Structure formats: structure tokens, C-alpha cells
Amino acid sequence: MSKNKFITEVLKSGGTIGALSPSSSFLAEKMLKPIHFNEAKCIVEFGPGTGVFTTKLLEKMSPDAKLLAFEINPAFHEELKTIQDDRLIVINDSAEKIDHYLMLHRLETADYIVSSLPFAMIPDEVVDAILKNAFEALSLKGKFIQFQYSLNALSKLKAMYTKVKINFTFLNLPPAFIFICSK
């Protein structure tokens, strides 16, 4: 997807897209670093947008792993569907329905959840439902990995997870915080 088309989608989104440009490869590298790809059988991605993280996840995933990608923006959803990989399941629905889609695809839990959702732009009750359902869908040793442009979500994440590690990258526009959460 071109940068102009991305910006058009941002302007049309009514606040559901929280970025001004697609995520950088530097951010993707930091987001994916905590993932043990040789052990991961189910990875879930919330808000994949143009697929920057999606393609990098697929490059590193095991041949028998699955990637469920939740994207509500119709243009991004269509773009993601052009990725030819049998391990990828593109879902045009809210991330709060993670449990339904895991069950639908006969997956017990998610080993990792990689989230790009702009929590600051989503109503609190929806954020709370997404976080609660993600926590419940995550395996005991799993990790919830979220990036944000501020520390606003930190208190919600710390209230839910026993360990929240924070990384930061200047090499993204805008610079981003990465939260790595463990049960």
C-alpha cells in the first residue's frame, strides 16, 4: 500500500488508525524480538494495518504455526488478504472477539499477541474488553506485546499482568513505547 493511500485511510478512519505512517522496520524488530518462533504455534495480531508486522511474523514463524490477524479497516483488510500464506487467517472483526475466533479455528490459546491498536483512540470499555479477552486467550507462558506512542496504557497493563517490561524506539515516526507483558 502506498503512503498516500495509507494517509487517505487514516483520514477516513474516524480515529481507528492511530499512526501517521506505517510502522518502521526498527519498531517491528523490537516488537518481534521477545517471540520464540520455534515454540509458537499460535500468534495473534491486533490491528495489523498494512501488514508490516504480519509479513515479518510470517517470515519467522514455523511452517505449522497459525497467525490470526484482526483488522477492522476494510481497505487494510483487503490488502492483508493479498498475502499468500496458508498460515495467515485474516479476520475483519474486533479484537475483543479473540476467544470466538480461536475456538472457530480449533486453537486453544495464543502463544503471543502482537498489538498495534491505538488504545488512546478507542473507548475505555472496548479497550478493557480487548485486554481482558486477550489475557484470557493467552497461554500461561505467553506474552502480550503492545506498542503505543505514550505511556497511557501502562496502568491498565500493569493491573492485569504480573510483569510489564517497557522498551522504546526513537527509530519510528513517531517514536514508540513497546510493552512486553507476561502473566
Rank of each mutant, 00 (worst) to 15 (best):
I178R: 05
S2M: 14
A176Y: 01
A120G: 11
E78S: 09
E71V: 01
H77I: 04
S21G: 09
K156I: 08
A137S: 08
E29C: 09
A69C: 11
L32R: 03
A69D: 09
N92Y: 01
F53D: 06
A69Y: 00
D64G: 02
S25E: 13
L138T: 00
E59V: 09
S116D: 02
G51L: 10
L27Q: 06
K41V: 04
K141C: 06
Q84L: 11
P34L: 02
F170K: 13
A75L: 13
K30Q: 12
P63W: 02
G18K: 07
I178D: 11
P175R: 09
E136N: 13
H100R: 14
I72V: 06
L102A: 01
G15R: 10
K5D: 10
S155N: 13
C181F: 04
S23D: 03
G49Q: 01
A129G: 09
N172W: 05
H105K: 06
A159Q: 15
L80V: 02
P123Y: 07
V10L: 14
L107C: 03
N167W: 12
E9D: 15
A176S: 12
E108A: 08
S155H: 12
Q84A: 15
R106K: 15
E59S: 15
I7W: 14
G14S: 06
I98G: 03
A134S: 06
V114C: 00
M160W: 11
K132A: 08
S62F: 13
L32P: 03
F76S: 02
I7A: 14
L88P: 02
S150M: 04
N167S: 13
K143G: 00
S116L: 07
V52W: 05
P22V: 12
E125N: 13
K41I: 08
K33W: 06
A69Q: 03
L11T: 07
L140S: 10
G51Y: 02
K141S: 11
A75G: 09
D85Y: 12
A95D: 00
K158N: 09
L88E: 01
K66W: 05
Y112R: 00
A159H: 08
V164T: 07
V44A: 04
K97L: 02
D93E: 13
S13D: 11
E96R: 06
L32N: 02
A134V: 01
L102P: 08
A65I: 06
H36S: 11
T8W: 13
M1H: 03
A159Y: 04
I91P: 10
A153P: 09
